[in-house]
């Protein structure tokens, strides 16, 4: 068996029937074409981030000299160093990090118990609520930002608590984007856990809370990681809410900070903008590079019911 398997490639090369050889040749060419087009699409996909890097490595003098834009003649890390040591950029980065981490924590604290209850504890209205969660996920933020803006302004008039133009307003806003999806994919993950597991725990006298924390959370960890990555990415990338709700420079997050403060002047400081954009894109890209499978699992889970 092993010998035939070993000898077959040689045989197909030398003494196979002409038809078989032709099919093999066709396959080979089909594969070459596939690689060729994949290279084209990959070049299209990677060109903008690559161009960010190229421009980020340039001094403004080289940019304004209008030399070949696709090449760096005098590479320098000056833009990156300047940004990383600039107080404003540090604040953007810090704000973004705090917001993203806290939003992840809030999202998990809300979604995990809710998903557990919705997938395991059938109660009055649980089916409607699960569908409602999914529908909420389909409501875009562009529909809600104006009424929310007015709501928070009214809230200030009533209570004196200022929420607009404070970074922590984002902690209220982002969960509306992250919680529905996180809950939805976690319902799917929890539903795939065999019922015997939690029934056994309940018979042994565990409370519902213990069943959740001791059994469901460890078993559904891949799903929880996928949801965490999703929540972090959304919180990091969100642009409309911070643009509408925060304006002072010390309250801005990275996405808005780069797009508004660095482009403000007439003379575009493109080397620095691109360096900033690359630094801002780095955290999601790094997470993606290390946890790609979880990332993709979370992405594809959205359209599948568990």
């Amino acid at each position: 068996m092993a010998t035939t398997a070993l000898s077959s490639p040689a045989a197909s090369g030398a003494a196979a029937a002409p038809e078989g050889a032709m099919v093999g040749g066709d396959r080979k060419w089909a594969l070459r074409w596939a690689y060729f087009f994949l290279c084209l699409f990959a070049a299209f996909a990677l060109m903008p981030p690559l161009y960010m890097l190229i421009t980020g490595l340039k001094k403004s003098s080289e940019i304004s000299a209008a030399t070949n834009p696709w090449w760096v003649y005098h590479p320098t890390l000056g833009n990156f160093v300047e940004l990383l040591t600039s107080r404003a950029f540090q604040i953007f980065f810090l704000n973004s990090s705090i917001v993203a981490v806290l939003v992840v924590a809030i999202t998990m604290a809300i979604s995990i118990p809710a998903a557990f209850a919705l997938s395991r504890m059938k109660f009055w209205g649980s089916g409607i609520l699960a569908t409602g969660v999914f529908l909420t996920y389909l409501i875009p933020e562009t529909l809600l930002f104006i009424p929310l803006f007015k709501m928070f302004a009214t809230f200030r008039d009533w209570t004196g608590i200022e929420l607009i133009n404070r970074w922590y307003v984002l902690l209220l806003l982002y969960p509306t984007l992250t919680v529905p999806f996180a809950t939805w994919i976690m319902i799917g993950y929890f539903a795939s856990i065999p019922r015997e597991l939690d029934e056994a725990a309940l018979i042994d006298g565990a409370s519902w809370t213990q069943t959740l924390t001791k059994i469901f959370v460890p078993v559904a960890l891949p799903g929880i990681i996928a949801a965490t990555i999703f929540a972090f990415t959304v919180a990091w990338a969100q642009f409309l809410y911070p643009l509408a709700f925060t304006t002072s420079e010390d309250q801005l997050v990275l996405s808005v900070g780069i797009a508004t403060t660095l482009i403000r002047a007439d003379v575009f400081n493109w080397g620095q903008i691109m360096a900033g954009a690359l630094l801002g894109a780095a955290p999601p890209l790094i997470i993606y590079a290390f946890l790609m499978d979880y990332y993709i699992a979370g992405l594809t889970a959205g359209a599948t019911k568990g």
């Binding site: 903008p48 981030p49 421009t55 691109m274 999601p284």
Partner: peptide, 20 residues
């Protein structure tokens, strides 16, 4: 992995690259 990169970068930031 390579082909999914555009989806991973925050849209606001990648659009800046396009703007440039």
């Amino acid at each position: 992995g390579m082909l999914l990169v555009p989806w991973v970068i925050p849209p606001a930031l990648s659009t800046l690259a396009w703007l440039w």
